[in-house]
């Protein structure tokens, strides 16, 4: 079946489509990241806290991505795991200036990586690729990227391909580079 899908995709009869999950704590900038990818940097509407989740579509590197923009509020975080089984990639957004909640972000990342749905029923042996966007890096109180890497313990994670990118969702710094890495990883493991 996989071979047949690959053949149709090679013939460009079937489009390359993938589902990505955008998660992270509330107020980290997930919806702003999605809005940037959709509009190419033109801010059309005021971002309000997401309730439940939102589904948006955009294209990158010949890949049509369906983004599930999940709410990051603590009462909605239990919803994330319901979408793990169908996602091909994850964007985990972190507010670099939120010192107190860095421990929570780290814990949520660990909970996600350890979740059985994130490793089972995968075509490749590696887990789902995870792009971590250290957002709001332009703020004065933002934690340096090296410290974020250490606090999240990224060097110890070997079950999933992980990439950390410093970003600013308002100006688009780091977003394209990050999304390019994620698209490459999705294509490599699924198509």
């Amino acid at each position: 079946m996989k071979f047949w899908d690959s053949f149709l995709t090679w013939l460009k009869i079937k489009k390359k489509e993938a589902n990505i999950l955008i998660v992270g704590l509330d107020n980290s900038g997930k919806s702003t990241v999605v809005q940037y990818f959709q509009t190419g940097g033109k801010r059309t509407e005021v971002t309000v806290p997401t309730i439940g989740f939102k589904v948006e579509k955009f294209k990158n590197a010949g890949l049509t991505l369906t983004a599930f923009d999940m709410s990051g509020q603590s009462k909605y975080r239990s919803l994330w795991e319901r979408y793990y089984s169908d996602c091909h990639g994850v964007i985990f957004v972190i507010d670099s200036s939120d010192t107190i909640r860095m421990a929570v972000a780290c814990n949520e990342l660990q909970l996600m990586i350890q979740h059985p749905e994130m490793v089972k029923n995968r075509s490749s042996t590696a887990g789902v690729p995870i792009l971590i966007l250290a957002n709001k890096i332009d703020l004065e109180m933002a934690i340096p990227i090296g410290q974020i890497r250490a606090e999240l313990g990224l060097d110890e994670i070997d079950t999933h391909p992980i990439h950390l990118e410093a970003s600013n969702a308002l100006t688009g710094v780091g977003l394209h580079a990050g999304l390019q890495w994620l698209s490459d990883q999705i294509i490599k493991s699924n198509f």
Binding site: I100, A103, V104, N107, Q110
Partner: peptide, 10 residues
Amino acid sequence: MSRNQLWLDA
């Protein structure tokens, strides 16, 4: 790997 602890050191 995160331990099963009740509190996170914030």
